[in-house]
Structure formats: structure tokens, C-alpha cells
Design a protein around this nucleic acid. Structure first.
Lengths: 203, 203
DNA sequence: AAATAGTTTAACCAGATGGTCAAAAGTAAA
DNA sequence: TTTACTTTTGACCATCTGGTTAAACTATTT
């Protein structure tokens, strides 16, 4: 009941994750997911009633993984500068292992903005700012990061690490033409992005 | 023959552009495009034989528009710093008018990387670098921009302007929660992004 | 071993989808 | 008006797609 069950349900979930990430909700086919999981299509509907249910389960988990990467940074006992370095390095490393995730999420939030809206409404941004300020009051002042321009700063940091993966086919083509490859570019980016950001705020 | 013809073909093309941008290739329906154009579905196939043909025509034009925004910057008689400001301002302004384009292109290049690969293979990157170096040799040296780290720099600049639109539903939700809205954020970004980049390279 | 409950399968279905086709409607020249 | 041509339409089709159902299979309990 539990042993084989979990196996099947997990097999389905993993297959669905792979297929949805590669093809997106619209491009994915239930038959394709069943084939990847090595089971009958009806079993999909047995465990997850509809394509929508299955997709939501997959998306929720993936989005969670992605956003949880942001949280622990705040707890680390590091200078703001080192936190930025730490975040960029870890975030890029995570995406190196899951290179299609950024494009998948970025696309699906446009198909259904309401889902991400609810997720964000549940975050206490004031508290987040208070925590940040308590830990780095002087640094924030010195770097001219205020509550008002925090979204600009945070989207800049996020963009520095996410954009290369979102635009991977373009960047990979460019690198290829210059005799390098995308992986080298990404390895370099860990340092380049962090340096760039820190230079910018140090002005 | 030519007058009404062009009108119909254009109506189809425009309707297809709207629908493809909003739903993507997989999510778009030929019937939906026909309805938007106010014509019979068969007419779509009369002018553009298949969905694929129609999509390619649309994508080619859109991608062209997007990338052409990069070119004229090189010709302007401005300092490198002003070119960066000019590019960011113009590029963001263009996307303000077409906010779904970035996400559309970013998504479709993953569905068919070969198309963008061919487009980029046709660009002469060496010549681009030579031109840039001829115009801004000293500035490039002073800002430590080399041929080797140019991709890092260019993707950073592109990311600064593109990422906010690619992640619009997330950013819009955050701004909403903070009592602002996305449009204000974007207006601010024109200056913030340019300042950020210039501060970073001035170090 | 029989009963019970959960799991897996094959066959099937209704609606959607991209695409075809022949005929009708429109247009311009002879 | 007739002829020749292009444009537009409605009816139609094969295939695909998400989803259902009833029966077969498996394992556990009594």
C-alpha cells in the first residue's frame, strides 16, 4: 500500500516534472508523461485527477525549491558583501544543476499570474526589510540601499544570476561562436556578477 | 489584388502576432487567430500554409525588431557611458510598449534553439568588437572591458533591462504589495539600471 | 480460501485541433 | 457578357487529447 504506492506516485511526479519543464504546460502530453514513467496513462488520472492537478503539484514544488534558495542567506552570519557573493554563487550553482527551471518558471507565471501573486502576498516584506536593516544598518546606508529602492536592487541581483539561464540558447550560441561554451561562461559569471554588483553599490 | 490582399494578409499577421505572443506557439489556436482577424480559419491556410509557417513569419519579425534595437547604438556619436544610458532608456521604452515580447522570445528560443543559433552565427562578432574598440579604446581599457569579458558585460546590460519584463508577474506582485506598481518600477529602472552599470564599471 | 480493498490496465469516448477541398463569391480583362 | 483568375467560405476529415470506465490483478485481512 505505501511502499509500491509511493514508488509509483513518485515515478509519475518525476516523469511529470521532466516533461513539464521541457515542454511547458501547453506543450506537455499526458501520454508522454505516462511513457516517461513507464506506466499506463490511466494511472496518471488515478493519482492526480487531471493534468491541471498534476501540473500544479509539480509547479508548486519547483517554485518552492527556487524561492527557498533566497531565504537562508538572511540567516548566515556574514557581511552584506559576503551575503551577495554567497547568494550569487549558490543560486547559480543550483541553476547549473537545473538549467531549464528559470525559463520554465518565467514562462508559466505569465500563463497564470494569479498563482505567483498569491504566493508573494503571503510574504511579509516589512519584516524582511526590518530583519535586513537590523543586521546591516550601516552597510545599507553606506551602499545607499533603502526600503524604497530595494526592489530595484533585488531584481538586479536576481537578474544577474537568472537571466543567463533564461537566455541560454542565445548566450550559448554567442559563446560557441567565440570559441568558448556556455558552461565556462556560467563558471565565470559566479565571480563576475558578484564583483559587478559590489562595485556598483560601493561606487 | 494588391489592396485588399495586403489588408487581409496583414490582418492575419497582426492577429497571429497578438495570439502567439500571448499564448505561445503551443497554446495558440488557429481558430483563435482567425477569430481575432475576423476571418474564416481556411483563409489562414490560404495565406500561410501551416501553423508552423505562420508562427515562423511572426517570430522572425518580432525577433528582428528586438535585436535591431541593439544595432544603432554603435553608430551614435556618444561616449560609452552615454551609449549605455541611451541603450537602456530606449530598450526599456520599447519593451514598455511591448511588455510580453521578452517572455515570448525567451520561451520560444528554448523550444527551438536552432533558429536563434543560425541567426547569431550570421553576426560578425569580431567586426563588432573591432568597431567598438575603434570608437572607445580608452574607455574600454579604463572600464576594464575586454574582448574576453564582453559577453559577461553585454548579458549584464541586457539582463538589467530585459529581466524585469521576463519576471513581470513576480515584480508586479511585489510592487503592489509595497504600495507601488509595475509601471513606476519600470520608469525608475531606466535611471537605476544605467547608474548601476556605470558605477560598476567605474569601480 | 474467501472476502475486501487498493492498484493497474485496455478499451473507449467526446471534443478539440490542424488541415483539406470543392464550391461560391468577387474581380478584372476581353 | 463571357472568360479566367483570385479570394473567401462552409462543410468535412483524420488525428490527437484529456479523461472515463469496467474489468483484471495484487495484496492484505479474516
Amino acid at each position: 500500500m505505501t511502499e509500491n504506492d509511493k514508488q509509483t506516485e513518485e515515478k509519475i511526479f518525476e516523469a511529470a516534472t521532466d516533461v513539464f519543464i521541457e515542454k511547458g504546460m501547453d506543450g506537455a502530453r499526458m501520454q508522454d508523461i505516462a511513457d516517461h514513467a513507464g506506466i499506463n496513462k490511466s494511472l496518471l488520472h488515478y493519482y492526480y485527477r487531471t493534468k491541471d492537478h498534476l501540473f500544479n503539484a509539480v509547479f508548486e514544488k519547483i517554485a518552492g525549491q527556487m524561492f527557498k534558495k533566497f531565504a537562508p542567506v538572511l540567516d548566515e552570519n556574514l557581511s552584506l558583501e559576503d551575503k551577495i557573493r554567497f547568494f550569487i554563487r549558490e543560486h547559480i550553482a543550483f541553476m547549473q544543476k537545473n538549467p531549464r527551471l528559470p525559463s520554465f518558471i518565467l514562462n508559466e507565471i505569465h500563463r497564470n499570474p494569479e498563482r505567483i501573486r498569491k504566493l508573494i502576498q503571503s510574504i511579509d516584506i516589512n519584516k524582511l526589510w526590518t530583519t535586513l536593516e537590523a543586521q546591516h544598518k550601516e552597510e545599507l546606508k553606506r551602499y545607499n540601499i533603502t526600503k524604497e529602492n530595494l526592489p530595484q536592487f533585488m531584481t538586479t541581483v536576481a537578474g544577474m544570476s537568472v537571466f543567463p539561464f533564461a537566455a541560454k540558447p542565445i548566450i550559448a550560441s554567442i559563446m560557441e561562436k567565440m570559441g568558448y561554451n556556455f558552461d565556462e561562461y556560467i563558471e565565470e559569471r559566479k565571480e563576475y556578477a558578484a564583483d559587478f554588483i559590489i562595485n556598483a553599490i560601493k561606487k
